[in-house]
Simulated assay, not measured.
Amino acid sequence: MRKFLYLTTMLGLFILNGCSTKKEAIVVSNDKGYILYNLNDNNTGQNVYEQVSSLNSVDENNINTEHLHILNFHWLHNHYGKLYSIVKKDGKYGIINDEGKFIVKPTFEFISKLYNDFFIIKEDGKYGYLNDDFKVVQKPIYLDAKEFSNGIAFVKFSNEKWGCISDDMKVLLYGKFDGIFPFINSFARVINDDKWGFINSKCEIIVEPKYNYVNNFCGDTAKVLLNDKVGYINNKGKEIVSTSLVYGQNLNE
């Protein structure tokens, strides 16, 4: 027999977890999983989910759906006024609205939080993107994928190297590097075969990986290390202080 929480308990969770919406949608649990109820709609509450992962607002982080034991009851009004939640059903992830209807069918192995207008999705071991209209704008074809920032995302291509795509899903830089670090001051450090270099905010290579290590840019210059000697480069990748100084300090200083 299903054991539903008493109304007072539900309201307590409702208050503690900030579950209110304009349509009074709440989440309750029974012995089989979690159920969404819209108190204004008698047709909700028919689907049982293994997980209900929710969002607070378009500018805040969703819970990490990799931690399947965590349940967050917070709901999101995105900038189109839609309410939705990421759910897990029959081992797959999808997205429902506050009426409990699927707006993204549960076919994915993973759906990330919404960040800068995109969800990262995973299907058959490959990664792609879903936009905030819940449309697949990039079928899962990449070995890995990162969040978009300033219109650019780093993705891992079939050659197991990292490159860049734009937010209209065009390839800006085909897989070239073993790793790409986040943009700092409009430049990102890249590494290949244990050598370091830089790309700019257009994913153009300004320094091929050749240094033993590089610092992030500070203003228009970055400190670099080559063969235990320190130098400086400008934002065009040109050495303005040759790597001829004896390395006798921490490169981060």
Rank of each mutant, 00 (worst) to 15 (best):
N72C: 05
T65A: 11
Y37V: 15
I103E: 04
A145C: 04
N72V: 04
M10F: 07
G91Q: 11
G81H: 12
S29A: 13
Y213D: 06
Y84N: 08
L130R: 00
K210P: 00
D167L: 12
H79W: 10
S201I: 10
F154Y: 01
V246I: 14
G175M: 11
A222V: 01
F198H: 05
Y129D: 09
N40R: 14
N252G: 03
V246E: 09
L130N: 06
F217I: 01
D168S: 15
M1P: 05
R2L: 08
V190M: 00
S85Y: 05
V136K: 15
D178W: 06
D167E: 13
Q51G: 08
L13H: 08
V171H: 11
T107C: 07
N56I: 05
K82E: 15
G163W: 08
P106N: 13
L13Q: 11
L76D: 07
P140I: 00
H74A: 11
H69R: 06
G128H: 01
V207C: 00
N212L: 02
N62P: 02
K236Q: 10
Y37F: 15
I70F: 15
N227S: 11
Y129N: 02
F108G: 02
G151I: 07
Y213I: 02
I205A: 09
A188R: 02
I35W: 07
L55Q: 13
S54F: 05
S29H: 10
I26Y: 14
S85I: 01
R2P: 09
K139Y: 14
D194Q: 08
L71A: 03
K105I: 00
D133V: 02
L251G: 00
N72I: 05
L7A: 12
N72E: 07
T44K: 08
K146Q: 07
N131R: 08
I26N: 07
I103P: 03
K22N: 14
G45R: 09
V137C: 10
C203F: 14
V136S: 11
V241Q: 09
N47C: 06
I191N: 12
L55N: 12
G91I: 12
K126C: 08
N38H: 12
D144C: 04
Y6W: 04
K32I: 04
V137M: 10
R2M: 07
V58I: 11
K32R: 10
V171T: 15
V104T: 05
Y115M: 04
K236N: 11
L71I: 13
Q249P: 01
A222I: 01
K236M: 02
C218I: 00
H67M: 04
L226M: 09
Y174R: 14
A145F: 06
